[in-house]
Amino acid sequence: GAPPLPPYSAGGREVTMKKGDILTLLNSTNKDWWKVEVNDRQGFVPAAYVKKLDSGTGKELVLALYDYQEK
């Protein structure tokens, strides 16, 4: 199953993602919540729920390892 959710501390809205989604990583300075862009929406997802990909394009991409439903 998915890892436990860290307390929400990102101070911005969250976004929903599905397992297998490829998201653009915008900011990973917060260790628990990373800012991503998905379907032209920006928001935060739990860092433990995604994995960085080596895209080779200069853009940082992450793979959704679990479904996440915004609150």
Rank of each mutant, 00 (worst) to 15 (best):
G1T: 15
A2I: 12
A2L: 13
A2W: 06
P3W: 05
P3H: 05
P4H: 07
P4D: 09
P4G: 07
L5K: 08
L5H: 08
P6F: 01
P6M: 01
P7D: 11
P7E: 14
S9R: 14
S9P: 15
S9Y: 09
A10C: 12
A10I: 12
G12S: 07
E14Y: 14
E14V: 13
V15A: 05
T16V: 07
M17L: 07
M17F: 09
G20E: 01
G20H: 04
G20L: 03
D21V: 03
D21K: 02
I22Y: 05
L23K: 01
L23H: 02
T24Y: 12
T24Q: 09
L26Q: 03
N27F: 05
N27H: 05
N27M: 07
N27V: 06
N27S: 12
N27Q: 10
S28D: 15
S28C: 08
N30L: 07
N30S: 10
N30F: 05
N30E: 07
K31P: 14
K31V: 13
D32A: 06
W33K: 01
W33M: 02
K35H: 12
V36M: 01
V36A: 02
V36C: 05
V36I: 06
E37T: 06
E37C: 08
E37K: 08
E37N: 04
N39H: 10
D40H: 15
D40E: 13
R41Y: 09
R41T: 13
R41K: 10
Q42W: 10
Q42M: 10
Q42F: 08
Q42L: 07
G43W: 06
V45N: 00
V45F: 00
P46K: 02
P46E: 01
P46D: 01
A47R: 07
A47N: 02
A48R: 12
V50C: 11
K51W: 06
K51T: 12
K52L: 14
L53P: 01
D54N: 12
S55A: 11
S55D: 13
G56Q: 12
G56A: 12
T57P: 14
G58L: 11
K59C: 09
E60F: 09
E60V: 14
L61I: 09
L61S: 07
V62H: 02
L63K: 06
A64L: 03
A64W: 01
A64H: 01
L65F: 03
L65S: 02
L65H: 03
Y68N: 01
Y68A: 01
Y68D: 00
Q69I: 14
Q69A: 12
E70Q: 13
E70M: 10
E70W: 09
K71G: 15
K71D: 14
K71R: 15
K71I: 10
K71N: 14
